[in-house]
Each structure stands twice: as structure tokens, then as C-alpha cells.
Write a protein that binds this DNA or RNA. Sequence first.
DNA 1: TTCTTCTCTGAATAGGTGTTCAGTTCTTCA
DNA 2: TGAAGAACTGAACACCTATTCAGAGAAGAA
Lengths: 227, 227
Amino acid sequence: MVYRRTHQVVKRLAARRSAILAAARDAANEGGMAAVQIAPVAVRANVAAGTVYRYFPSKADLISELIADVSRDELAAIRRAADAAPGPSSALAAAVTTVAVHVVSHRKLAWGILAEPVDVDVNATRLASRREIAGEIETRINAAVRAGHLPAQDTALAATALLGALHESLVGPLAPDNLDDPAKLRDAVQTATLLALRAVGVMDARARGLVVQAALPAKMLANAQPG
Amino acid sequence: MVYRRTHQVVKRLAARRSAILAAARDAANEGGMAAVQIAPVAVRANVAAGTVYRYFPSKADLISELIADVSRDELAAIRRAADAAPGPSSALAAAVTTVAVHVVSHRKLAWGILAEPVDVDVNATRLASRREIAGEIETRINAAVRAGHLPAQDTALAATALLGALHESLVGPLAPDNLDDPAKLRDAVQTATLLALRAVGVMDARARGLVVQAALPAKMLANAQPG
DNA sequence: TTCTTCTCTGAATAGGTGTTCAGTTCTTCA
DNA sequence: TGAAGAACTGAACACCTATTCAGAGAAGAA
């Protein structure tokens, strides 16, 4: 009389888990991390509040996993874009553009993951996520420096500052508020990218060229969500 | 039999108000806005919790006033530094350096005022504060552009990005953690300032010169608080 | 079909923090 | 000095939301 999970059950359990995570992601994307509350998320996932706890030991774990998920996706996108570029400078430009597009495409979510305060328990995850992204950017800056395209500098600080500039100008409270218009959005992404590249020492003229080259297909911008 | 406040009483009331605000400021400086809780603040100010409500209608009002206070000070410092500079570029460098020094000097407070999420009621105040600072920086960028020292650009976005770069690299979670050492701190401030200036289009060589010129007296750095 | 084990439910619980208010203490004024 | 008004106190209250858990519902084994 041993109970053994049927394949079908295993699938359903996995699906529920995903549904809960997806619900959390949606909630975060609509109202920031503050909106990721157990009861509402449960409703969204068509599940009772208690059920959430059968999949995640605590809210902190849920959010941690959400953050890890999102940054895994983001990191992959950055690497893909950068690796496809012809040289170190283009790679950096592509990486930066990718980050810019991602944050404007999911502003609330990005804000929640980046800046919104949460339990100390999730800070570790968030920090790790940030480190990964910053580390990737730093790697690309380093490559450009080694190639002689950028002046020698504290690349860790530079990567951090670069991300700060992007985030603040694109999803911060002072970010332009008319980003629903695709044209404006594209402008904002390009302007922010230009600023970021100049910050690490790319000369103005060259930076403008790189930004244009790195311009992403409209398809990617089309994913942007109003809000 | 009209009760009339004696001068002494008026003074005491004012002192209490200040004490409460100061307590709130201290708390924020130690643990961010999350640490600004009525009961602890009251204890710090040697007052009962209820008393706080005789001076501030609600916690949101208390925090709003705190934010307004801090940014008033900051704005004044920025203007003082910039106005004392010999030209538009130096003025911008001085302004940026001032912001950098301020944020590293009170990291937790800065973080709380800048990024930590709070009641919607205080968001207006925080936004206003941010706008003021960004506006001042924007003004200085504009002056430098008009003087032909910087390329034409979206100065509002540039100011925002510039502040983002500073904040993220100096008080963000990835900021260097050895800023207790005055030498390191000075380095970090200068590096961040350099990045910020380059971002808006100051050429590398010139930026380095401006950063050195704008170097603030050690006295100002001495106010930095460990943490 | 029936028993056992797993899974889900959602109302109840728990903990934390802003806010109130009846009672106390202090201050003014005659 | 005493009456009246103002300020202060701090325990009680209120609200919000994460978490629990006893009972209900499904799913597997026999």
C-alpha cells in the first residue's frame, strides 16, 4: 500500500508551482514587490493561501525564487546579445542595450527586484542577482579596456555606476513618464545607453555609433508594457 | 483666564519637535526608513509614543518632513559649492562632488530617502525632493552645454542618470564596503564623480582635472559615518 | 469499492506596528 | 494657591498580512 506519485500528478504539481511563481511575477510586474502578497497571489494562481505553503516554505522563499528566475533570464539575454556582437565595444553596447530594454519592458518588476525593500532573507538572493548582472557587465567593460577601447578604470565600480544610471533614468521615479509611446521609449533607451557608455569612457562620437548599431529589433521593444 | 504659551514653553515645544525629527533622522541613518518607527523614535526622543502625534499628524508626515529637511540641506550645499566654482564645468563638478560626499557620509539615510519604499503619502515629498536635486544638477549641465563644454543632450535624463550612477555606486548594495577608510572613501567619491561627469559628455582627460579641482576639504569627508 | 496517503482549503491564529484616548502631570493665570 | 487649560503618557486598540492546521477532497493501492 505504498503511495506513489503518478506521472500525471507530478505534472500537475509542477504546473501549480509554476502557476504560483507566474502569479507572483505578474503581481510584481503590476504593483512591485509590495503587491506580492500570499493571499492575492494565491487567488491569481487559483489556489488557496495555504497551498502556497505546500510549494514554498515562506514568502521570502517565493520571492527569492522569483528574483532568481528573472535574473537568470536577464543574464542569459545579456550574454546572448553580447556574444553575438563583433567586438568588445559592440558587445558592451549590446549588453547595455539589452539591460535597458529589459528594464523598460517590465518597469515595475525591475524596480521591485532592484530597489524595493523586502525581508532581509531575500536580500541575499537579490544581492546575488545584482552581482551576476553587474559582473557580466564588468566582464564586458574589462574586455573593452583590454582592447584599448576604454581607459583603465575601476571596472567594478564602473559597472555598478553604469547600471545605476540605466535603472534610475529608465525605471526610477524621475524616469520620463511617456514611455508608452514606442518612439519615445526607443529614444529613452538609446539616450540612457549613450550616457552609460560615455560614463565608462566611450567617446561621444563612437558611443553614438555603437548605440545605433546595437539598436534592437522593434519586436523586443514591443514587449514593453504600459505602466 | 486665557492660557497663553510662555516663551519658555514655546521654546520647549520647538525643542521637542526638533528632538523628534532628530531622533527620526538618527534612526533612518542607522537602519534606513524601515527603522523609523514611532515607538523607537519616541524612546530616542525621550517622549511617549502618543506625544509624537502631538507634533506630527501621522508617521507619513513625520517622514515627509524629515525628507524635506534633509534635501533642503543638501540642495543648499550643492548650490553653495557650485556657485563658488569659477566656470560652468567646475560648477557641475563641484555639484556632483558635493552630492557624492553627502551620500557617502550618510549612506543609510541617503538610501532611505532615495530608494526605500514607504507609504504612498510620502512619495510626493520624496519625488519633490528628488526633483529639486535633479533640477539643480540639470541646471548646471545646461550651463555647461551652453558654454560649449558638453554636447547637446536631454539634460533632464542626463541629470537623472548621473544621480543614479552616483547613488548606485556609492550607497547601493554593490557599493564598495570598505568606505570606512578615508582614503578609499576619497577614491570612491572621485571615481564615481569621474564616471558621472564622463556620462554627460565631459571628456576623460578634462573630467579627471575637474575631479581633482573639485576635491573637497578633508574636513567634509571626516563627517562620513561608518556603516 | 474501500482504505490509506497525499493534497488542498480557508478560517483562525499570531505578530508586528501605527494610532487613539482616558487619565495624569505640568503650566498659566487670577 | 487653586482652578482651568494644555501637554504628556502608555496601555489598549485596530489593522494588516504571513502562517498554521483541522477538516475536506483527490488520488493511489488492493
